[in-house]
Design a protein around this nucleic acid. Structure first.
Ligand SMILES: NC(=O)c1ccc[n+]([C@@H]2O[C@H](COP(=O)([O-])OP(=O)(O)OC[C@H]3O[C@@H](n4cnc5c(N)ncnc54)[C@H](O)[C@@H]3O)[C@@H](O)[C@H]2O)c1
Ligand SMILES: NC(=O)c1ccc[n+]([C@@H]2O[C@H](COP(=O)([O-])OP(=O)(O)OC[C@H]3O[C@@H](n4cnc5c(N)ncnc54)[C@H](O)[C@@H]3O)[C@@H](O)[C@H]2O)c1
Lengths: 217, 217
DNA sequence: GAAACGATGTGAAATCTTTCACATCACAAG
DNA sequence: CTTGTGATGTGAAAGATTTCACATCGTTTC
């Protein structure tokens, strides 16, 4: 079964909803309830769940604990990933605090910055190193993933260093596209253009994307 | 011409690249150069640019200043939007600082928080009000767009208040899906699931989305 | 000016994603 | 046991996005 990026992302969100924001006393859920909560169609939910190898029972819906277990399974949630935040500025530090309390399998083990004032300290619960030590620490701590929060002007240079040091996945917040060799995974988050999208569709209703449906009939 | 969300987002990123990170001495650009920089195919670039009503010239490519002008035009960049940050915590304050220096047409005019310590002060250059004043200030300052940075548990409640007050677009960072009435535009940014996507494809090469192409032949 | 070149613009094909529609199933009720 | 109900799982249609392929055109060169 080949899971697309989109399905993958939605599965992660289903899981977050079910584990973090769902009343504990509920043991089962219907596709259309999940759909209403997510703002998607019920058939899309069912289609997504097909690739889990877990099947709900008609009339009862999906058993939540089983569903979560199977999502974990498909998303490889047993593997622990070591993550580094690169660039311990405002955004980087906010992310450190935020992610600390989140999925146990994604552990932030280090931060890097080229500002000497930030190195050799513990920032927001994370040991922060100078950029000179990237290669050494990445190898020593088996860091596979980097969250890139450095200014756009140096983003490509820092990326090249990270890749050279052995990082296999990068989540880029710098508002510039960066290039990576094949074999490395890249996800870009461009907050400015997200905000611009909202602004555009806000006063341009005609072009707005089709309404999200909340049911299936 | 009907512009999809995806095209819209890419146009914003082309513009950012051309205005912020492109050598000033260059006056023209080819679709395949832009493509290489963005990590997309040249034909996709050309297809996206088709909806601008501006045409490049064969052999010379696109004139950058004209291109930017036409993107501005399509994205309605002349209109000034008033934006509020709701929830002046770590993320909210990082965003205030960051967005201040960005597009002039998206102006952060207020922040809101229910912590009395944060109200009635200027935080990161933005006046911060208590949540009790949302309705009044949104109307007074004609705030159309809200950036939602409150804890997930209260996100829906705060959203309802914002919509009631007249906000027309919401950029949601809380890691829960929120529901809005039709007529309001919503964009969700889920950093946790973005990070999980990176982690997944990092040790699951087989399922990785197709390589981005950098050329057209 | 004519020919060659090397880029664009775009119809059509290919691919990816979502939705529809309905057979099927497990349980509840009679 | 039989029937009715209201879910699921899924083939196939519809829709959206991306890529291919090539006609076309402005520039350069001869
Ligand atoms: N703050 C936000 O809300 C926000 C939102 C979206 C995107 N971004 C982007 O994220 C990045 C960081 O934003 P920020 O607000 O945290 O900025 P910031 O200035 O607060 O932090 C940048 C950090 O990077 C460090 N740095 C600079 N050069 C470096 C180098 N060569 N190697 C290592 N570290 C280096 C600096 O010392 C600083 O600590 C920027 O690219 C910004 O555009 C920020
Ligand atoms: N920090 C991050 O990097 C990050 C990343 C992704 C998502 N998020 C999400 O963004 C939101 C904010 O994150 P944060 O790190 O800034 O948290 P934070 O705790 O630093 O800030 C939350 C702010 O919201 C305010 N608040 C609480 N209840 C409120 C209410 N009812 N009305 C108005 N304001 C209220 C608090 O006073 C606080 O200032 C959370 O939902 C978080 O999950 C944060």
């Amino acid at each position: 079964m080949n899971i697309s990026t989109k399905v993958m992302g939605r599965l992660a969100r289903y899981r977050a909803l079910l584990t973090d924001y769902f009343p504990k006393e509920k043991t089962h859920i219907f596709s259309h309830d999940l759909a209403a909560m997510m703002g998607l169609s019920a058939s899309q939910i069912r289609r997504d769940l097909m690739c889990l190898g877990y099947f709900g029972v008609p009339r009862y819906g999906y058993e939540i604990s089983e569903l979560v277990k199977h999502i974990n399974n498909v998303l490889d949630a047993s593997k622990l990933h070591h993550v580094a935040v690169v660039g311990a500025g405002n955004l980087g530090r906010a992310l450190m605090t935020f992610l600390e309390s989140r999925r146990a399998t994604l552990k932030i083990v280090a931060a890097f910055d080229d500002d000497p004032d930030k190195a050799n300290r513990v920032l927001n619960g994370v040991p922060c190193f100078h950029m000179d030590l990237v290669e050494e620490v990445v190898k020593r701590d088996d860091i596979r993933i980097a969250i890139l929060c450095v200014p756009g002007a140096v983003a490509q240079r820092v990326t090249d260093l990270l890749v050279k040091s052995g990082v296999k996945g990068i989540l880029n917040f710098a508002p510039v596209p960066i290039r990576i060799p094949v074999g490395v995974v890249l996800e870009e988050i461009d907050l400015t253009s997200a905000l611009e999208r909202v602004a555009f569709f806000t006063n341009n209703r005609a072009n707005a994307p089709k309404e999200k449906r909340h049911a299936d009939r």
